[in-house]
Design a protein around this nucleic acid. Sequence first.
DNA 1: AATTCTCACAACCGCCGGTAT
DNA 2: CATACCGGCGGTTGTGAGAAT
Length: 214
Amino acid sequence: MYEQEEEKIRKGPWTVQEDMRLVNYITLNGEGRWNFLAKAAGLRRSGKSCRLRWVNYLRPDLKRGNITPQEERLIIDLQSRWGNRWSRIAQYLPGRTDNEIKNHWRTRIKRKFNAGNRPSQHSMCSTCMPDQFIEQNDGAEKDRTPQSNIPQNHTVFHFDEQRNSNGVNEFNGNKSGLFETLAMPFQMESYADMLSELHEFLMEDGNLSPFTEF
DNA sequence: AATTCTCACAACCGCCGGTAT
DNA sequence: CATACCGGCGGTTGTGAGAAT
Protein backbone atom coordinates (compact mmCIF):
# COMPACT_ATOMS: atom_id res chain seq x y z
CA MET A 1 0.00 0.00 0.00
CA TYR A 2 2.46 2.55 1.20
CA GLU A 3 5.13 1.05 -1.01
CA GLN A 4 2.90 1.57 -4.03
CA GLU A 5 2.48 5.18 -3.04
CA GLU A 6 6.24 5.47 -2.71
CA GLU A 7 6.70 4.20 -6.24
CA LYS A 8 4.43 6.85 -7.70
CA ILE A 9 5.99 9.42 -9.97
CA ARG A 10 6.18 12.73 -8.18
CA LYS A 11 4.83 15.88 -9.77
CA GLY A 12 4.74 19.51 -8.83
CA PRO A 13 7.40 21.81 -7.48
CA TRP A 14 10.86 20.40 -6.94
CA THR A 15 12.26 20.23 -3.45
CA VAL A 16 15.75 21.34 -2.48
CA GLN A 17 16.68 17.71 -1.91
CA GLU A 18 15.55 16.76 -5.39
CA ASP A 19 17.45 19.64 -6.92
CA MET A 20 20.58 18.67 -5.06
CA ARG A 21 20.20 15.08 -6.08
CA LEU A 22 19.78 15.98 -9.73
CA VAL A 23 22.64 18.48 -9.81
CA ASN A 24 24.90 16.10 -8.00
CA TYR A 25 24.11 13.19 -10.27
CA ILE A 26 24.53 15.16 -13.49
CA THR A 27 27.73 16.76 -12.28
CA LEU A 28 29.18 13.35 -11.60
CA ASN A 29 27.70 11.43 -14.51
CA GLY A 30 26.63 13.89 -17.15
CA GLU A 31 23.20 14.50 -18.63
CA GLY A 32 21.12 12.50 -21.08
CA ARG A 33 19.25 9.18 -20.92
CA TRP A 34 16.77 10.98 -18.73
CA ASN A 35 14.57 8.05 -17.76
CA PHE A 36 17.58 6.05 -16.68
CA LEU A 37 19.03 9.12 -14.99
CA ALA A 38 15.87 9.69 -12.97
CA LYS A 39 16.02 6.16 -11.59
CA ALA A 40 19.77 6.10 -11.13
CA ALA A 41 19.69 9.37 -9.25
CA GLY A 42 17.00 8.00 -6.97
CA LEU A 43 14.47 10.56 -8.09
CA ARG A 44 10.83 9.63 -8.18
CA ARG A 45 10.35 11.86 -11.18
CA SER A 46 9.81 11.20 -14.86
CA GLY A 47 12.78 11.59 -17.14
CA LYS A 48 10.97 14.44 -18.79
CA SER A 49 10.54 16.24 -15.53
CA CYS A 50 14.23 15.83 -14.71
CA ARG A 51 15.26 17.12 -18.09
CA LEU A 52 12.95 20.11 -17.81
CA ARG A 53 14.18 20.99 -14.35
CA TRP A 54 17.79 20.75 -15.45
CA VAL A 55 17.39 22.59 -18.74
CA ASN A 56 15.18 25.37 -17.43
CA TYR A 57 16.50 25.90 -13.95
CA LEU A 58 19.58 24.03 -12.80
CA ARG A 59 21.88 24.16 -15.81
CA PRO A 60 25.11 25.94 -14.90
CA ASP A 61 25.24 28.14 -17.97
CA LEU A 62 21.90 29.79 -17.38
CA LYS A 63 21.90 33.54 -17.29
CA ARG A 64 20.03 34.70 -14.24
CA GLY A 65 18.48 38.09 -14.13
CA ASN A 66 15.96 40.04 -16.06
CA ILE A 67 15.75 39.99 -19.83
CA THR A 68 17.66 43.04 -21.00
CA PRO A 69 16.17 45.54 -23.46
CA GLN A 70 18.66 44.29 -26.05
CA GLU A 71 17.57 40.73 -25.51
CA GLU A 72 13.94 41.77 -25.67
CA ARG A 73 14.48 43.49 -29.00
CA LEU A 74 16.21 40.40 -30.29
CA ILE A 75 13.31 38.23 -29.16
CA ILE A 76 10.84 40.53 -30.87
CA ASP A 77 12.82 40.49 -34.06
CA LEU A 78 13.35 36.75 -34.15
CA GLN A 79 9.73 36.07 -33.24
CA SER A 80 8.62 38.27 -36.11
CA ARG A 81 10.86 36.27 -38.42
CA TRP A 82 10.22 32.75 -37.22
CA GLY A 83 7.05 32.84 -35.15
CA ASN A 84 6.89 30.86 -31.93
CA ARG A 85 10.00 28.80 -32.61
CA TRP A 86 11.13 29.34 -29.04
CA SER A 87 13.87 26.76 -28.94
CA ARG A 88 15.34 28.19 -32.11
CA ILE A 89 15.08 31.73 -30.79
CA ALA A 90 16.71 30.59 -27.55
CA GLN A 91 19.79 29.48 -29.49
CA TYR A 92 20.46 33.13 -30.21
CA LEU A 93 20.18 34.18 -26.59
CA PRO A 94 22.91 32.32 -24.71
CA GLY A 95 21.93 31.44 -21.19
CA ARG A 96 18.23 31.91 -21.84
CA THR A 97 15.85 28.99 -22.11
CA ASP A 98 13.02 28.56 -24.55
CA ASN A 99 10.63 28.44 -21.60
CA GLU A 100 11.94 31.70 -20.23
CA ILE A 101 11.68 33.41 -23.59
CA LYS A 102 8.23 32.00 -24.18
CA ASN A 103 7.05 33.22 -20.79
CA HIS A 104 8.60 36.62 -21.34
CA TRP A 105 6.91 36.90 -24.70
CA ARG A 106 3.52 35.91 -23.41
CA THR A 107 3.52 37.97 -20.24
CA ARG A 108 5.29 41.13 -21.26
CA ILE A 109 5.99 41.63 -24.93
CA LYS A 110 2.65 40.40 -26.18
CA ARG A 111 0.89 42.61 -23.68
CA LYS A 112 2.82 45.60 -24.93
CA PHE A 113 1.76 44.72 -28.46
CA ASN A 114 -1.84 44.38 -27.41
CA ALA A 115 -1.59 47.81 -25.84
CA GLY A 116 -0.66 49.16 -29.25
CA ASN A 117 3.02 49.62 -28.67
CA ARG A 118 4.18 47.13 -31.22
CA PRO A 119 7.60 48.13 -32.42
CA SER A 120 8.22 48.05 -36.12
CA GLN A 121 9.19 44.65 -37.40
CA HIS A 122 12.89 43.97 -37.65
CA SER A 123 13.42 47.13 -35.72
CA MET A 124 16.84 46.04 -34.58
CA CYS A 125 18.11 44.44 -37.73
CA SER A 126 20.39 47.25 -38.74
CA THR A 127 21.92 47.63 -35.31
CA CYS A 128 22.00 44.23 -33.72
CA MET A 129 21.13 41.63 -36.29
CA PRO A 130 23.03 42.06 -39.52
CA ASP A 131 21.56 40.15 -42.43
CA GLN A 132 24.85 38.41 -42.87
CA PHE A 133 24.43 36.97 -39.42
CA ILE A 134 20.86 35.89 -40.03
CA GLU A 135 21.69 34.28 -43.33
CA GLN A 136 24.66 32.49 -41.95
CA ASN A 137 22.59 30.90 -39.26
CA ASP A 138 19.62 30.23 -41.46
CA GLY A 139 21.91 28.32 -43.70
CA ALA A 140 23.04 26.24 -40.77
CA GLU A 141 19.54 25.46 -39.65
CA LYS A 142 20.11 21.74 -39.80
CA ASP A 143 22.90 22.06 -37.30
CA ARG A 144 20.95 21.86 -34.10
CA THR A 145 23.92 22.19 -31.83
CA PRO A 146 23.19 25.30 -29.82
CA GLN A 147 25.66 28.09 -30.26
CA SER A 148 27.87 25.98 -32.45
CA ASN A 149 27.45 28.38 -35.33
CA ILE A 150 27.26 31.62 -33.46
CA PRO A 151 30.05 34.07 -34.15
CA GLN A 152 31.89 34.37 -30.91
CA ASN A 153 32.71 38.04 -31.20
CA HIS A 154 29.53 39.36 -32.67
CA THR A 155 28.22 42.40 -30.91
CA VAL A 156 24.75 41.00 -30.62
CA PHE A 157 25.94 38.66 -27.91
CA HIS A 158 27.77 41.25 -25.92
CA PHE A 159 24.84 41.87 -23.64
CA ASP A 160 25.62 43.54 -20.38
CA GLU A 161 25.29 41.43 -17.32
CA GLN A 162 22.24 42.34 -15.33
CA ARG A 163 23.51 44.27 -12.38
CA ASN A 164 21.83 45.59 -9.32
CA SER A 165 22.28 49.01 -7.85
CA ASN A 166 25.51 47.96 -6.19
CA GLY A 167 27.00 46.97 -9.48
CA VAL A 168 26.91 43.33 -8.50
CA ASN A 169 25.71 40.71 -10.92
CA GLU A 170 22.11 40.00 -10.23
CA PHE A 171 21.33 36.45 -9.18
CA ASN A 172 17.64 36.69 -9.78
CA GLY A 173 15.59 35.45 -6.87
CA ASN A 174 13.13 33.00 -8.28
CA LYS A 175 10.16 31.92 -6.29
CA SER A 176 11.24 28.37 -5.78
CA GLY A 177 14.28 26.25 -6.16
CA LEU A 178 17.79 25.73 -5.08
CA PHE A 179 19.04 29.27 -5.03
CA GLU A 180 16.50 30.85 -2.82
CA THR A 181 15.49 27.97 -0.62
CA LEU A 182 18.78 26.30 0.18
CA ALA A 183 19.31 26.45 3.88
CA MET A 184 23.06 26.43 3.42
CA PRO A 185 24.72 29.81 3.69
CA PHE A 186 26.11 29.88 0.17
CA GLN A 187 28.24 32.86 -0.67
CA MET A 188 28.50 32.28 -4.36
CA GLU A 189 30.10 34.24 -7.13
CA SER A 190 28.90 31.80 -9.72
CA TYR A 191 27.03 28.63 -10.24
CA ALA A 192 30.32 26.75 -10.47
CA ASP A 193 31.15 27.87 -6.96
CA MET A 194 27.73 26.80 -5.84
CA LEU A 195 28.25 23.38 -7.36
CA SER A 196 31.56 22.86 -5.64
CA GLU A 197 30.07 24.03 -2.37
CA LEU A 198 27.17 21.69 -2.95
CA HIS A 199 29.52 18.78 -3.50
CA GLU A 200 31.47 19.61 -0.40
CA PHE A 201 28.25 19.75 1.50
CA LEU A 202 27.10 16.43 0.12
CA MET A 203 30.38 14.75 0.96
CA GLU A 204 30.46 16.17 4.45
CA ASP A 205 26.84 15.43 5.14
CA GLY A 206 27.18 11.75 4.35
CA ASN A 207 23.43 11.31 4.33
CA LEU A 208 22.87 12.35 0.78
CA SER A 209 24.37 10.62 -2.17
CA PRO A 210 22.83 10.02 -5.58
CA PHE A 211 22.07 6.47 -4.55
CA THR A 212 20.49 6.90 -1.17
CA GLU A 213 16.76 7.13 -0.73
CA PHE A 214 15.18 10.06 1.01
C1' DA B 1 -6.43 44.48 7.74
C1' DA B 2 -8.84 41.69 4.51
C1' DT B 3 -10.03 40.60 0.02
C1' DT B 4 -9.56 40.62 -4.88
C1' DC B 5 -6.93 41.19 -8.94
C1' DT B 6 -2.90 40.86 -11.82
C1' DC B 7 1.41 39.24 -13.05
C1' DA B 8 5.30 36.16 -13.55
C1' DC B 9 7.04 31.82 -14.03
C1' DA B 10 7.75 26.85 -12.92
C1' DA B 11 6.01 22.77 -14.40
C1' DC B 12 2.90 19.70 -16.88
C1' DC B 13 0.71 17.86 -21.11
C1' DG B 14 0.26 16.22 -25.67
C1' DC B 15 2.32 15.79 -29.91
C1' DC B 16 5.98 14.78 -33.11
C1' DG B 17 10.29 13.12 -35.03
C1' DG B 18 14.29 10.31 -34.48
C1' DT B 19 16.31 6.09 -33.01
C1' DA B 20 16.62 1.44 -31.28
C1' DT B 21 14.91 -3.14 -31.30
C1' DC C 1 9.05 -2.76 -42.01
C1' DA C 2 6.58 -2.20 -37.59
C1' DT C 3 6.58 -1.00 -33.04
C1' DA C 4 8.19 1.02 -28.79
C1' DC C 5 10.66 4.28 -26.51
C1' DC C 6 12.82 8.63 -25.72
C1' DG C 7 13.86 13.44 -26.08
C1' DG C 8 12.52 17.87 -27.55
C1' DC C 9 9.12 21.32 -28.57
C1' DG C 10 5.22 24.53 -28.09
C1' DG C 11 0.97 25.35 -25.67
C1' DT C 12 -1.21 25.62 -21.43
C1' DT C 13 -2.12 25.69 -16.51
C1' DG C 14 -1.48 26.20 -11.46
C1' DT C 15 0.11 28.93 -8.00
C1' DG C 16 2.64 32.23 -5.18
C1' DA C 17 3.70 37.09 -4.61
C1' DG C 18 2.77 41.70 -4.85
C1' DA C 19 -0.40 45.47 -6.08
C1' DA C 20 -4.75 47.48 -5.91
C1' DT C 21 -9.08 48.21 -3.78
